[in-house]
Write a protein that binds this DNA or RNA. Structure first.
Lengths: 203, 203
DNA sequence: GTCTATACCTGGATAGAC
DNA sequence: GTCTATCCAGGTATAGAC
């Protein structure tokens, strides 16, 4: 069959997400695929190679991006400051909820995020991805965006604090991976937060 | 020397926090202590036993508790509802910042939290501790508290949402374990958030 | 590309002398 | 209580037939 490389990546990710990189052996992976270890080594050079391929895969993977919702792309500069200032709050709402649903509802994305949470401490590359995708990267962008947007309102506010107050609840809810709360209930809480944030801010 | 058991726990925690439970071998621990594996097994029955002892140790460890700041203790009931309603916002501020500083500045506490973040997915007990100490447990308590407190204000609000908006930024900042931002800068951002939250809420 | 078989190593854990 | 020596299971990875 042709898609074996693909299958290996999917099965490996699901195992890594559950037991961590060190907790999964090449035997575990090959057994779940009903092939032998020897066969697996025809597709990848080793266990680390599989892990690396998963990270690369996700870096290239399609996910909701600010630009898809008409929000400014790239870091804040003097050239695009006006675009940042005139960004549409509804667009930000839509983007935030789309990203939230992507990272909580898409199976591959959710497993991947869980893997990052575990591996960020042992692996530089995982740490970087975690930071860019879910922590400093987002906070920096939202800080610039909300800071500039609020410059036009009656009560200008500090971007970094606004970004934290807007994003942290979503970040925390994304961490409820299959825990106490799930599915629609999670999304509804996220949505109530986003609405409440904008109601308060734009009042 | 007498405190060997103690030393083993500290060294093990620092290694576990860095490399994860599976990533640390008994040899690693004994080497760092300059004793042999054989000697180590006189103090603990095995690697798992060391890990369990660390969790127990922290469960018993002193940490800031709501009651230390005059806030209600125990779950909300009809009997203590009045106490919840009349809780002092300043006390909640002080408690929140004390807990934040404890979990970010105390070496043992910070390593332990990092360990929980990694092991919550492989270990029931870690998952439970994480949930009670940092996620559902806190959110539940704060939800009840803020919900009841706000019942006396001019604009009653939903406790669960208030709790999320108050606590999630602190939770997220606690995750910046030695990452991009550190030390005083972290605490100052936390403090600005706490102040901003109450300013907005009690206005 | 998949199999069987195997080399090689590291990890957890124990035995027994001191 | 600490040492040396050792066992054994399980891990990664490779070789070579089919």
């Amino acid at each position: 069959m042709g898609g074996m490389r693909e299958k290996i990546l999917q099965v490996s990710l699901s195992l890594f997400a559950k037991d961590g990189y060190e907790g999964v052996s090449v035997s575990d992976i090959s057994e779940k695929l009903n092939i032998t270890k020897g066969a697996l080594y025809r597709h990848f050079q080793g266990k680390r190679d599989i892990y690396d391929a998963i990270l690369t895969r996700v870096e290239e993977h399609v996910r909701p991006m600010p630009a898809d919702f008409g929000l400014p792309r790239g870091p804040l500069t003097d050239a695009n400051r006006e675009e940042y200032r005139r960004a549409d709050p509804s667009a930000l709402k839509l983007y935030a909820m789309a990203a939230f649903r992507h990272w909580t509802e898409n199976e591959f994305a959710r497993s991947f995020r869980q893997l990052l949470v575990m591996e960020q401490f042992h692996d530089e590359r995982a740490a970087g991805l975690m930071s860019v995708e879910f922590v400093s990267g987002i906070l920096g962008y939202l800080g610039d965006l909300l800071g500039e947007m609020s410059a036009l309102t009656s009560v200008p506010a500090q971007g970094d604090l606004l970004a934290l107050e807007f994003y942290a609840p979503l970040h925390m809810l994304m961490g409820f991976l299959g825990a106490t709360i799930h599915g629609e209930k999670l999304a509804s809480l996220a949505s109530r937060h986003v609405d409440a944030f904008f109601d308060r801010w734009l009042r």
